[in-house]
Write a protein that binds this DNA or RNA. Structure first.
Lengths: 222, 222, 222, 222
DNA sequence: AATGAATGAGAATTCATTCAT
DNA sequence: GATGAATGAATTCTCATTCAT
C-alpha cells in the first residue's frame, strides 16, 4: 500500500495534529470525499495551503488518514463495550450495545458522519476496502454476541446465524442512522428525534427481537 | 415554494422531455447532486447548454424535477404491489414486497441509485423534505400491511406497531442496499451477492420475523 | 487520434482566432511546452481563462494545434521554393533554399523558435511524432533536390545519397540555428550575426560543398 | 559576477560533494533548468532541503556550478583526444574525434544531455555565456585540427577556414545529436539508430568530406 | 553547519450560470 | 425559443525559498 501520511505530520506538535485532523474530519463528514475542499480544511486548521502537502501525499492521503483515525476510535469503543458486558445475557448485551452506539454518535457525530458519507459515494478512494473493514467489525462483533448467547442457551438453537447477524446489523445501524437523520423519524414513529423517546423505542424493538430469537422457556413442570 | 421547472419544458415534445429526464436521472444517480455535471447532461440529451436554463431555473430545479419523476415511479410500484396482494396473508405480502423491491432495483437501478446518493448528502436541495416523502411512503405502506395483518389476527395483538414498522423498514431497505452494495456481503453472510443466494437469505429472514411477529397458533383443543 | 481543437474555436471570428494563435505561439516559442503558462496566453489574447477550455481540450490540445499551424506555414514555404527553382541547377537551388530559410526565420522567428524548443524537450506531447514530421519534410525536400541533381549529371554519380542528405540537413539546419542563436557566432567565425556576413558565409560554404559533391568537369579535349 | 557556490560546499567531504553534483546533474539533464526540481535533487543526494541553500545561493547557483563541472569533463576529453592523435593525418583525427564523441555520450549521457537541454532554453541563467564557452571549445579544437592539416598540406590551401570550421562543427554536433535523438534517424537515413550503422554512416560522411576538403594528389609523374 | 517545517504564488482544469444573437 | 460563447471563481497540487531551532 502506498504511503499517505508523511513523517512531517507525525513530527508535528500534538495540538497542531489534532487541529488538522479535526478540520479534515469536519469537512469530509460534512461534504463527502470529492466535495470536501482542501481550502476549507487549511482555513479551519490555520495552516498554509502548501503545508498540507508537506503532511500528506494528496487529498486521498488526508482522507485515508482521518478515516483510519476514525476507525481506531470506533474499534476502541466496540472492544470496550464487549469486554465490559461479558457477564451479561445476550439481550442485555444487545441493549447495552445499542445505547453505547447512541451515546457514541452523540459524542462523535463527525465520525459517524464520515461513515455515512462514504457508504454511497463511488468516488471515495479504496471505498470498497474501507467499507468492508467497518462492516466486518460490526459483523464480527455481532457474531461474537450470538455465539455466546447460543452457547449459554439464551437463543433458539435452530437460529440461522448469518441471517440473524444481518438482521441485527440492519437494525442497529438503521437505528443509529435514524438518530442522526431526522427524516427517519417517520419510520421510527417519532415526531421528533429526542433522546428519551429513542430509548423507549429501543427497548420495544429489543422486545420484539427477544420474542423472535430467544429460546423458549423450559416446560413449567420441570 | 419557488418554481423549478419552466412551462417551456412542459411544452416540449414528449420524447425530448424523456431524453432530458433520462440524461439527468443517469447523471444524478451516478454522481450525486453536487458532483453531477450539467455539461454531461446536455451532452447526453443532445440539447444546448442554454436551453437547460430555458427549461429549469437552475441545477436544483433540474434535480427536484427528476426526483419527483422518480418518486412517482416508485409510488406506482407500491400501489400496484399493495393492490395485487390484498388477499394474501401478512407474511406472504411481506415476501412479495421484498421480491418486488429486488426486481425493481434491478429494473430501475438509476432510481434506486438517486435515492441512495441523496440519503446522506447534506448538500442536496430540500433534502430533508425529499427524504421524508420517500420514507413516508414506505412507512405508510408497512403500516397498512401491519394493520391488515393485525385485523386478520395473523399477528400478535400486542405488537408495538411503530417499532415493528421501523424494524421492517430497516430490514427491507437494508436488504435492498445489500443487493446493490457489495461491501454489505459481509453482514449478509454472503461470499458473493448473487440473486439465488439473496432469495434464500430473504426467506430465512422472513422466517425469523414470522417467529417474532406471528400470532401464536390457537390452542389445539379448542 | 483524439480531438484537440473544439469546433467552438473554429467558429470564432478570424481575428480572434489569430490573436489566440499568436499569443500561444509566442508563449510556447518562448518557454517550451511545460514551462509555457496558459495564464500568459489568456492575458495576451485578452480572453478569459475558462474560454481557452471551450476552444481546446487541454494544454496539449492548444500546443498541437499551434504546432500544426506552424508546420503548415513551413510546408507552404518549402513547396513554393521547390517549385520556383525547378529550372535551376543543384547548387543554385541549394543556395536559394538557404536564403529562403534565412528570410523565413527572420519573418517568423516564433515558428522557428517553437521547433527549436521541442527538439530537446522530452515532455512535449507526441514529440517523437511531431519531430519526425518536420525532419521528414526536410529529408524529402533534400532528397528531391539531390535526385534531380544526379539525374542532370550535376553531381558525382557515386555520391552516397543518404549520407549526403544528412550532411546537407545538418548544415542547413545548423546554419539557421546559428542565425538565431548568437552563441553560434563563434563556430560561424562571426563577431556578430549580421545579415550581410551571413550571406557571405553561406556562399563560401556552398563552394566547399560544390567541390565535395559536384561532378568532375568533362575532359578538356572533348 | 555574483557568487554562486558557497565555501561551505567546498569544505564538504568529497563524496558528499560528488553525491550532490551527481544528483543535480541527473536532474538538470533530465528536465532542463526550469523544470528541474530541487526536491528531487535533495532526495537523491540524501541531504536536507535547507542545506542546499547553505551550499549554493539559489537554483541558478547550483546549475551554474554543475555546468562548470560538466564543461571541465568535456574539456579534459578534448585535450586528451587532441594530444593522443597529434601524429595522425587530418582525416584520421577527424574520424577519431567523431568516434570519441560517440563513446563520450554513451559514457556520460547526462553531460551531453545537459548541453542539449540548455541549447534552446531561453530561461537558463547566463545561457548566452555558457553556450559560447562550449562552442568556443569546439571551434578552437577544430581550428587547431585544420591548421595542422593545412600546414602539413593535407588540405586544399585555398580552404575558407571559418566556413570549414562551421561545416565540421555542424556535422559533428548533429551527428551526436542524431545518435541521441531517434527522430533524427530519418535524416540520417537509418531505420534504427544502432551503433553499427552509425559507424558505417560516419565513415561515408568522412569520405564526402575528404573529397571536398583534401588537397589534390600531387601530379603522378613528379 | 544542518535541519526540515512553513509559506504562498502560480500551475492546469472544471463548471454553473449569463447573455447577445 | 434556441443557441453556444464567455466568464471567473473554485478546484487540487507543486515548488523555490526562508527561517527558527
Amino acid at each position: 500500500m502506498a504511503e499517505t501520511v508523511r513523517p512531517t505530520f507525525l513530527n508535528l506538535p500534538e495540538d497542531k495534529q489534532a487541529r488538522i485532523i479535526e478540520a479534515a474530519l469536519s469537512e469530509f463528514a460534512d461534504k463527502g470525499y470529492q466535495q470536501a475542499s482542501l481550502n476549507v480544511i487549511v482555513a479551519h486548521s490555520g495552516i498554509a495551503k502548501g503545508s498540507l502537502y508537506q503532511y500528506f501525499t494528496d487529498k486521498a492521503g488526508i482522507f485515508l488518514y482521518v478515516f483510519d483515525f476514525a476507525i481506531a476510535v470506533v474499534r476502541r469503543l466496540l472492544v470496550q463495550v464487549k469486554d465490559s458486558t461479558l457477564e451479561e445475557d445476550f439481550f442485555t448485551r444487545l441493549e447495552r450495545s445499542l445505547l453505547a452506539g447512541l451515546a457514541f454518535i452523540r459524542q462523535h457525530p463527525k465520525i459517524y458522519g464520515i461513515y455515512l458519507k462514504i457508504l454511497f459515494d463511488q468516488q471515495v478512494p479504496q471505498r470498497q476496502e474501507l467499507l468492508q473493514r467497518v462492516r466486518q467489525y460490526a459483523a464480527d462483533y455481532l457474531h461474537s454476541l450470538l455465539r455466546q448467547g447460543l452457547a449459554r442457551g439464551e437463543l433458539r438453537p435452530d437460529l440461522p446465524v448469518a441471517s440473524t447477524v444481518f438482521l441485527l446489523d440492519a437494525l442497529l445501524d438503521r437505528f443509529l442512522q435514524a438518530a442522526s437523520i431526522p427524516a427517519f423519524d417517520v419510520v421510527l414513529g417519532l415526531d421528533q428525534a429526542n433522546a428519551q423517546v429513542l430509548h423507549t423505542r429501543a427497548r420495544e424493538l429489543l422486545e420484539v427481537l427477544r420474542r423472535g430469537l430467544a429460546a423458549p422457556p423450559p416446560p413449567a413442570n420441570l
